[in-house]
């Protein structure tokens, strides 16, 4: 609501302060194109400055009416009155967290629910002699299926996470584990999780906080985009 009011106010200001338009150069006198432009311009001006703005100054009323009809027909043929798509997608209203169409402008991240009912990003282990970004790509396809076209953005990890230290039954600490994160874009397709994954969801940064545990969130929150 505020956004619309702001933009329309700024557009009105800009229209009021704009330089005059050189009709003579761009249009032949009395052409259909000129009539059509004038009609559209009048409509825009009246929307900006009120319904009484501007006056019609036609010398030849009949010819002007004929031109206007022709211009209207031309506009209809070209499908001028196509409506814009709404910003809210049906998947937003249905709260379909598996849809990639939700939250139009925001960045969505893929979260998986593993066998321990914990939500996390797709992850796996590195094999010997493998580079980190290659391992990231292999592990992503292993957990999310081959039915998506994805691209690992950079060879550098964008962040890392160390889980809290746990003790083995004998009392000695387990060897330290580190998870490195890589950024990837999905171009097309959809996640089809492997058998060991219980569920998946496409979430914004703010939604992720309520899914993952506190320690994990503190480790990953700074690598996620606020946009």
């Amino acid at each position: 609501m505020f956004e619309r009011a702001y933009y329309s106010y700024q557009a009105r200001l800009r229209r009021a302060l704009s330089n005059p338009f050189p009709y003579d150069f761009y249009f032949k006198q009395g052409s259909i194109l000129e009539t059509r432009f004038n009609m559209e311009e009048q409509k825009r001006e009246r929307r900006a400055f009120g319904p009484t703005f501007g006056k019609e100054d036609d010398f030849d009323k009949e010819r002007a009416a004929a031109n206007r009809a022709a211009a209207q027909q031309l506009a209809e043929q070209e499908g001028e009155s196509e409506e814009m798509m709404p910003r809210v997608h049906p998947s937003d209203e249905a709260r379909d967290y598996k849809s990639l169409d939700r939250k139009g402008k925001r960045n969505l991240y893929l979260l998986l629910k593993d066998a321990n009912d914990a939500w996390r990003f797709p992850q796996g282990s590195v094999e010997k002699g493998e580079l980190l970004h290659q391992a990231a790509q292999r592990d992503m396809y292993a957990e999310c299926g081959e039915h998506m076209d994805a691209w690992i953005v950079s060879r550098n990890p964008i962040g890392h996470y160390k889980p809290p230290m746990t003790l083995s039954p004998k009392g000695s600490p387990f060897p330290e584990q580190v998870t490195f994160f890589f950024k990837a874009h999905i171009m097309q397709g959809q996640c089809r999780p492997a058998d060991n994954v219980k569920d998946f969801a496409w979430l914004t940064k703010q939604e992720i906080e309520s899914y993952v545990d506190k320690h994990y969130w503190d480790g990953i929150k700074d690598i996620l985009s606020d946009h």
């Binding site: 956004e3 933009y7 700024q10 557009a11 200001l13 800009r14 402008k105 960045n107 874009h185 946009h227």
Partner: peptide, 17 residues
């Protein structure tokens, strides 16, 4: 001083991605 009159798709694309 006049500001933006519409959201700018490519500018958003720059900042978001």
């Amino acid at each position: 001083v006049t500001r933006e009159i519409a959201p700018c798709r490519l500018e958003d694309h720059y900042y978001s991605t």
